[in-house]
């Protein structure tokens, strides 16, 4: 179908963008890469009366490192993150995840901030940001505030962003020496939204894991931090027995519901299998035996 009628504004800077959103409030939507929003408009799932196109705000785009933090501007395209040496060095989890984010043509235009603010429960980047303990920088009329990724996603397509605010960047603590990442997902077609998946960041020495952050996506209305499974894995060497115990503990962390495509029980089983594979990736275990 075609998008419903709307009108269109193109602010020249962030201050003007905030002026516009102040006037139109909930009637307006930010238009960034448009790879989810324009699809939703074409399917008539959304009908904002005004689109505020922020693609011209170059101050929102770019990747830099400052004071031990990797800073990714909200308007940075997925393609740039996928090929960024800074991202590969300081947040390799994002580099692992990026090839799974939709398809090449979509990554060329879709933006990091757009994916975060849209908060699709099956999207990869929200879970990565939780596993990386990122903080989001948000600007509104009242100034700037920061929200940790783990507190940002509040429900199905819902976030801590308030009307009148705009997400401007993510700040990610640069990985330290022992920091390692693993990323796994299952999808029907490469690049489609995941049936289930997880992002893991941990400090790894031999087969011992510390500071384990495990974030699942596609298993609930928002990404989920699997704290019980992580605490099991922090108790000693990642042996097949311990990984199995962590798989068991996932019952405390996740409660996938049945939906039109898959049963909750199937998603739980997939989450357990993917957890074992991801931990196997971290400690170079032969994951086939641990996956059972």
């Amino acid at each position: 179908m075609k998008a419903p009628a709307f009108s269109y504004l193109r602010p020249e800077n962030i201050s003007q963008a905030i002026d516009f959103i102040d006037i139109y409030g909930d009637e307006a939507r930010w238009l960034a890469g448009g790879q989810s929003l324009l699809a939703a408009l074409n399917m008539r799932l959304a009908a904002p009366s005004v689109l505020i196109d922020i693609n011209g705000l170059s101050e929102l785009a770019g990747i830099s490192v400052n004071a031990g933090k990797l800073i990714i501007g909200a308007l940075t395209r997925h393609r740039e993150i996928e090929h960024s040496p800074l991202v590969a060095q300081h947040a390799s989890l994002l580099a692992l995840a990026m090839p799974h984010v939709a398809h090449a043509a979509v990554r060329n235009r879709g933006t990091f901030g757009g994916s975060i603010a849209f908060a699709d429960p099956a999207a990869e980047l929200p879970a990565c940001c939780i596993a990386l303990d990122a903080e989001f920088v948000i600007v509104g009329r009242g100034g700037e505030r920061r929200v940790r990724a783990r507190h940002f996603f509040t429900g199905l397509y819902e976030t801590a962003l308030q009307t009148g605010e705009i997400l401007v960047a993510a700040e990610i603590p640069c990985a330290r020496d022992k920091g390692r990442a693993a990323f796994r997902e299952l999808a029907r077609r490469h690049g489609d939204y995941a049936i289930a998946g997880l992002a893991v960041q941990a400090a790894v020495e031999g087969d011992v894991l510390r500071d384990v952050n495990i974030a699942f996506f596609g298993v609930d209305s928002k990404p989920v931090l699997a704290e019980h499974a992580a605490s099991v894995l922090e108790q000693g060497a990642a042996t097949p027995a311990r990984i199995e115990q962590a798989q068991h503990q996932l019952a405390q962390d996740l409660a996938p519901q049945d939906d039109v495509h898959y049963s909750g029980a199937m998603r739980m089983q997939l989450a357990r299998v993917l957890l074992a594979r991801a931990i196997g990736d971290l400690v170079n275990l032969e994951t086939k035996s641990a996956a059972r």
Binding site: Y8, G34, D53, V106, R109
Partner: peptide
């Protein structure tokens, strides 16, 4: 499909491929 799934509208914009159904003409 007009929602970015089938890829039939792919073209090149500023040297990279994009979905023409997920980009406004004004953009």
């Amino acid at each position: 499909c007009e929602h970015g799934v089938c890829g039939a509208c792919t073209l090149r914009c500023n040297g990279v491929i994009v979905r023409a159904c997920l980009m406004l003409a004004v953009q």
